[in-house]
Design a protein around this nucleic acid. Structure first.
Length: 297
DNA sequence: AAACGTCAAGTTCCG
DNA sequence: CGGAACTTGACGTTT
């Protein structure tokens, strides 16, 4: 079974970057065009590098289009850079790469404030547009979290489900919910899946620091299978996030590297299941290469 | 050239 | 109540 293993956003082995940005105060159309052009070139280089190193899973940075959902950015980037998007999209498809994006903490579709729900949708919209512009199918996912609790989780969950159902189809087709490290544990998101059909990315470190404490959460194999069952042909092979707790740091904080021994143990135990693995570490692609090296020995 | 304070946004936790 | 942290450090000014 081919398990893809990948990393998020930054390649520390090469100079190419997808993360150039500017300050709101000095943001001009020309500057934005330059930045977008530079970031897309960086993306091309990173994808090529990934392919040469047999890495076929990659998260595209959310700062690749600076101020994408802010009114200061009026660039029709999906039109102006159509050729670049087409080229990168082909590169991704030809190399069987799977990409994802992970909109950040400002997406809270269950917020009490209609304004924040609106800006959350704007944020989701441009991410979907980015992947759509690459002509990628819905196995290339948008990962996000449930949002805040606002003092009443049952009510906040109910709002999430209600708002989710109103999201435009092109966005919903890619949305994927991840268990988080503080508020919504894997049981919460599985429960939301039952009401919405949204697939679940299982984050193993978040699960370690945020679970029900009951027996049900000790059985990793059952949980993996439950999460994997939320995926289908349209949404693609199930996916997990894997990272190691930074020693001595706040629970949930990522270590510099994957703990290779622990990961190999985990991998050997579950490799009969079909799933992709996104590493979240400070050393990025280096953890993937280290694991490759170890697995080939 | 290196060092350092600051940067669009929301929410939560910690001190 | 202020600051840090989060999926992700980079910019711009000063030394």
């Amino acid at each position: 079974m081919e398990h893809r293993i990948g990393y998020a956003c930054i390649n520390t082995s090469i100079d190419a970057t997808t993360n150039k940005t500017c300050r709101l105060g000095n943001c001009t159309d020309e500057r934005l065009r330059q930045l977008i052009h530079s970031n897309l070139s960086g993306l091309k280089e990173v994808i090529s590098w990934n392919n040469r190193h047999n890495i076929f899973l990659y998260r595209v940075s959310s700062v690749i289009i600076p101020f994408a959902s802010h009114e200061v950015n009026k660039i029709q980037w999906w039109e102006e850079f159509k050729d670049d998007f087409e080229e990168i999209g082909k590169l991704i498809k030809n190399t069987q790469m799977r990409v994802s994006m992970h909109p950040g903490q400002y997406v809270n579709i269950n917020s009490n404030s209609p304004e924040i729900v609106k800006s959350s949708l704007k944020e989701l919209d441009w991410h979907a547009k980015f992947l759509d512009s690459l002509n990628l199918d819905s196995t290339h996912r948008l990962i996000f979290h449930t949002g805040g609790v606002y003092g009443d989780k049952t009510e906040a969950k109910r709002r999430f489900i209600k708002e989710y159902k109103n999201i435009p189809e092109n966005i919903k087709a890619r949305l994927t919910l991840e268990n988080d490290d503080k508020s919504y544990n894997v049981q919460d998101v599985l429960n939301i899946h039952q009401k919405t059909g949204i697939p679940i990315v299982f984050d193993i470190l978040h699960h370690q620091v945020n679970n029900t404490g009951k027996k049900i959460d000790d059985d990793l194999e059952s949980i993996l299978k439950l999460c994997f069952a939320t995926w289908n042909d349209k949404t693609g092979i199930p996916k997990i996030h894997y990272s190691t707790q930074r020693p001595g740091a706040r629970p949930g904080m990522h270590a510099d590297s994957i703990n290779i021994d622990e990961f190999i143990k985990f991998y050997l135990k579950f490799k009969n299941l079909d799933f992709d693995i996104m590493f979240e570490t400070k050393n990025k692609e280096k953890s993937v290469l280290e694991v490759y090296k170890r697995l080939s020995n």
